[in-house]
Design a protein around this nucleic acid. Structure first.
Lengths: 266, 266
DNA sequence: CGGCACGTTGAAGTGACTCAATTCGCGTGG
DNA sequence: CCACGCGAATTGAGTCACTTCAACGTGCCG
């Protein structure tokens, strides 16, 4: 974990780059030169304590973040002080590529539980993007996947009821963790307090608590000690109205199934 | 309006390209060559009748859409048949640049009221993006602005109450119309039925109706015959908890003010 | 004229919120 | 070692905002 030797720094860099490459390769075909360029990126690893803000609402960041381990979240803070989480990010996510092209942050980014991140200079990334259209597209695609997740959140908060919202959150987090390769025996890390879950899906703690109990008692899923265990995927998915299409994932082997949908024309 | 001569087609093309260039120039600095490349784009103008779907959930589009006039909306259709609008688009928006890089559509795109759009082949746009990093960034930035609007929608549906939601929708639509240069005397087109407003902000028609009456009676804003009139910006903004930062607009002269926010650390 | 979509209004029902109290685990200071 | 404070989870109960149901007016169109 720690890095007393200084030699560890090298392998930490290598490991992070490998993680980044693996992520981009999941949706984009990188050429040998692209990989070389990415391999040469300078980065700074940073450890975050729980709750620590990386970027604040109103900031104009000069670096972009890559999540190495742990969980980060983005959120709005309203004029009345209330907080709304916009997205959750796990290992190999890039929570604010957008700051590369947008000026002022309209939201904050903070650690949820202890986390490790890598920081990349914007100047460097801009250069990279200018040199390789392939890499540019890959990063662009990252932001588009992000947007797809945002869209689901709009629907979750706007059209689903309490139980469905919580179930959908759990489904999505599990599916994404599965893709990131950090699930173990139908379980994954989910270091959210019930209060925070409420701030994600727009519910009060009390309602979240009851929804979780409901999911537990019906044998769908269980959340305990910051860890989510999925007991019955099919059931959970149904309750959540979860359709993983939007994640553009390869879910073969995950136990997740893509249901047929049933559109109408009102 | 109509194009009986065939010569009108030429100027329609020119006008559309001009609209597109003006839009991109609002946030990106294009070089002479960039503008030339864009000027050479082939496009197809299409008229849409109210409600007509341009892209369906599940499709794999081969073209991207640019809104010339009227309004389009994107929406999810849930397994239970209910509809949730994700975003609304007006003149000079590009509602699905994302389909350029993402495969399957997770949502549909349709006209809200009669509209005119321009269609651009993906192959063509991909070539363009490969030729000019500047244009690539400009389009990328478009999708990022889109995402910023999505984020606000998450917060609207998750953390605001009924009155605020409707007020926020009206605020945002007016501000965006102002930027697009299609406001007249504190009013702009907003061809949404109250049912649709409900599907945007996650409320029942009845509640929407009462929220609108409230806004009308308090002298904030008025929505009638598909047209929004803003009676008192400051008041409307306050009720909406509307902070226009996320639109990255130049709002000087619009009457919109950016309030200071008041963050905390719960 | 009849049908239909939309806006409006009243009233009843309920899901989620607020308020409040209890428990538990954990870290701190006496 | 234990009392204490604190954050988080849990539970019960009362309240309210929003939903659902239902009816009616209006304007538009075939």
């Amino acid at each position: 974990m720690a890095d007393p030797t200084g030699r560890e720094g090298r392998s930490e860099h290598a490991a992070t780059i490998a993680l980044l490459l693996a992520r981009l390769r999941q949706h984009s075909r990188l050429g040998g030169n692209d990989e070389r360029l990415i391999g040469r990126l300078r980065l700074r690893i940073e450890r975050l304590r729980s709750g620590q803000e990386v970027v604040r609402q109103g900031d104009r960041p000069t670096m972009s973040v890559f999540v190495v381990s742990g969980m980060l979240g983005r959120y709005h803070t309203l004029a009345n002080g209330s907080r709304q989480y916009l997205s959750l990010h796990i290992s190999s996510d890039m929570p604010d590529v957008q700051s590369l092209l947008l000026g002022q942050m309209d939201h904050a980014l903070a650690a949820i539980g202890p986390a490790r991140i890598a920081l990349f200079e914007h100047t460097q990334l801009k250069e990279l993007v200018g040199q390789s259209p392939t890499i540019a597209s890959a990063l662009w695609r990252e932001t588009l996947l992000d947007a797809a997740i945002f869209r689901q959140a709009i629907t979750t908060n706007g059209a689903r009821k309490a139980g469905e919202r919580v179930a959908h959150l759990l489904s999505e987090q599990y599916a994404r963790a599965w893709q990131a390769g950090i699930t173990e025996n139908n379980s994954c890390a989910l270091p959210l307090s019930q209060i925070q879950i409420g701030q994600v899906v727009g519910l009060s703690v009390v309602t979240v608590n009851r929804a979780l109990q409901q999911l537990r008692q019906s044998g769908c899923a269980e959340l305990r000690d910051g860890r989510l265990t999925v007991l019955n995927w099919r059931k959970l998915q149904t309750r959540a109205l979860f359709d993983p299409t939007y994640l553009s994932l390869d879910l073969r082997g995950s136990g997740v199934h893509a249901p047929r949908l049933n559109p109408r024309a009102p």
